[in-house]
Design a protein around this nucleic acid. Structure first.
Length: 543
DNA sequence: ATAGGGTTAG
């Protein structure tokens, strides 16, 4: 939720959500007695005034109490009938350990000392599982994550497993805190018992490469044996994979040339290179790599051919794709679900829906079993073609076969329902997603927010923002732009203004188009005071 | 261990 502990506007972020929660609480309290008009605009002064006058019992509650308890209660039925809102469990609030820790970590100023101090009084049963969950939750915020990690290490009766160390190494690498990362690797090495593994070093190399520190990534490989990890084909492939993924096939190739005599290679060494050359549009070299592969007595396999096919698909060169498929058949190499997904998806994007569905048929005929990603693509292209009945059928098929939907599939379904203005259906998918324990992301919510802006369903909008909060989805600049634009277009100017304000207070700089749209609307409605305010905010954002 | 994941406002 809180994107950065360096962000001085951290407080305003949590305040925003607290006010939303107050809103729900007030709403609930209203429904248990008598329906009351609740202010529609999520504007702090309004709500506070409203709560103070009508519901002192709500405003007076401890904020720490309100957040977890409301998280258990806010439910979709509010959409239609607020009276159906589930009752608020006022007394029993069982916080799990992870919530307790999260709350402590979220309330800290950005320093490791503060984190350590805040945690000092806490007593709980630490386990590697719990520590991993906390780290996952804070995987974008290295200070609280590392503060907690360090604190946990010192607790008696607890010891970090190597996997937990690896996770921490990865978080530090992601934050580009490479000095601390290396210290941690050295610390792991000192523990002995093979704490540093190929897994650890793969993460190190990957993060260094991602930060553009190619030389350091390569040096990590050169010195890998000092940490007790062997310099073999596995670590070589890991390095080459890291370089290829971070856009440097050339370097991967150089490394390949340097070590191909001294380290016995395997099939994936070549496939990593082939994939790299395909990805960066050098099909001639990819082909040459395949020839070299054969000289080393390795047969190109489904991975090699799929990389080629993907490259041709990106060029929409389906004639070449068919050629490669023919070549595979000649060599006795069967395409698999990934191969079919790539082809079908590319055909769908090229608006060749019939041909895309032919691939589906062909795949079924060949006995290849579709997986979640395949179906996800299929749902996407059917939805894009407006074939909603077929989409429904596919989902039913998946359920029958026991294939779970993933985030992308749910996002697609929500997107389809939203663009067709099917409010109930869109929310139903969101609910189902939750029941399936499938974690939503920012893309899950964007179409929903757009839809409900369009429909002027302010309560649902609040519900969604709260839902995002509960799922640790941070609202980004793009989300605010969407809200401001959506509300502006549909005449909810006051709300649009307050989101604009919140956007600026959180440190996001509004785009010119967003700004001018809002100003134009305010001018049209001759709202001089609001216009001045928005202009001031914009100056502040640019300053 | 190497291969798949949707631009968008109008």
């Amino acid at each position: 939720m809180l994107r950065s502990f360096q962000n001085p506007n951290l407080y305003s972020i949590s305040k925003t959500h607290i006010k939303l929660l107050h809103y729900f609480l007030a709403n609930h309290l209203c429904t248990t007695t008598e329906p009351t008009q609740v202010p529609e605009s999520p504007d702090l002064p309004n709500w506070v005034k409203f709560l103070d006058t009508k519901h002192p019992e709500a405003a007076g509650l401890d904020e720490d109490f309100i957040i977890p308890s409301l998280a258990n209660w806010v439910e979709a039925p509010m959409l239609k009938d607020p009276k159906k809102a589930v009752k608020l469990p006022v007394v029993e609030i069982a916080d799990t350990d992870i919530d307790i820790i999260s709350r402590v970590l979220k309330n800290q100023h950005p320093s490791l000392e503060n984190v350590a101090q805040a945690l000092s009084g806490i007593v709980l049963d630490l386990s590697n599982g719990l520590v991993e969950r906390v780290l996952r939750r804070f995987s974008n915020e290295w200070v609280p994550a590392f503060g907690f990690f360090t604190w946990a290490k010192m607790q008696t009766g607890y010891r970090h497993a190597p996997e937990v160390y690896n996770f921490m190494v990865d978080i530090l690498g992601k934050a580009e805190k490479f000095d601390i990362m290396w210290d941690l690797v050295i610390e792991m090495d000192k523990i002995g018992e093979r704490y540093v593994s190929l897994d650890t070093m793969s993460k190190v190399m990957r993060r260094l490469a991602r930060a553009g520190r190619y030389k350091e990534a390569i040096d990590a490989f050169r010195g890998i044996e000092q940490f007790g990890v062997s310099k073999d084909v596995l670590s070589l492939n890991a390095l080459m994979g890291a370089l290829v993924k971070e856009r440097s096939v050339e370097l991967a190739h150089k490394i390949f040339l340097e070590f191909k005599e001294s380290i016995p290679l395997n099939v994936s060494t070549f496939n990593v290179l082939i994939h790299g050359w395909c990805k960066y549009r050098n099909l001639d070299i990819a082909r040459k790599t395949m020839e070299e592969m054969e000289k080393h007595r390795f047969k190109p396999d489904v991975f090699s051919y799929t990389s080629l096919i993907e490259a041709y698909c990106n060029d929409k060169d389906f004639r070449k794709v068919a050629e490669v498929l023919g070549e595979m058949k000649d060599k006795g190499c069967e395409p698999n679900a990934v191969t079919y997904t790539i082809i079908m998806h590319a055909l769908g994007k090229a608006r060749e829906i019939t041909k895309a569905l032919d691939i589906y048929e062909k795949m079924k005929m060949s006995g290849c079993i579709p997986d979640t990603s395949f179906y996800s693509s299929l749902i996407f292209l059917l939805g894009k073609a407006g074939r909603l009945k077929d989409v429904q059928e596919i989902v039913e098929d998946m359920e029958k076969q026991g294939i779970k939907l993933d985030v992308l599939a749910y996002n697609t379904l929500i997107n389809i329902a939203s663009t067709h203005s099917q409010e109930e259906a869109a929310l139903k998918w969101l609910k189902k997603m939750e029941e399936d324990l499938c974690k939503p992301d920012l893309k899950t919510y964007a179409p929903l927010l757009k839809l409900f802006c369009r429909k002027k369903r302010m309560r649902v909008l609040c519900f969604l923002l709260d839902h995002m909060f509960k799922n640790d989805i941070g609202i980004e600049g793009g989300t605010y732009a969407l809200l401001v634009r959506g509300l502006c277009m549909n005449g909810k100017l006051a709300t649009a203004c307050s989101f604009f304000e919140e956007m600026v207070l959180k440190g996001f700089s509004p785009k010119d188009s967003t700004y001018s749209m809002l100003i134009k609307e305010l001018e049209g409605k001759s709202k001089q005071k609001e216009k001045k305010h928005v202009e001031r905010l914009m100056l502040q954002a640019r300053g």
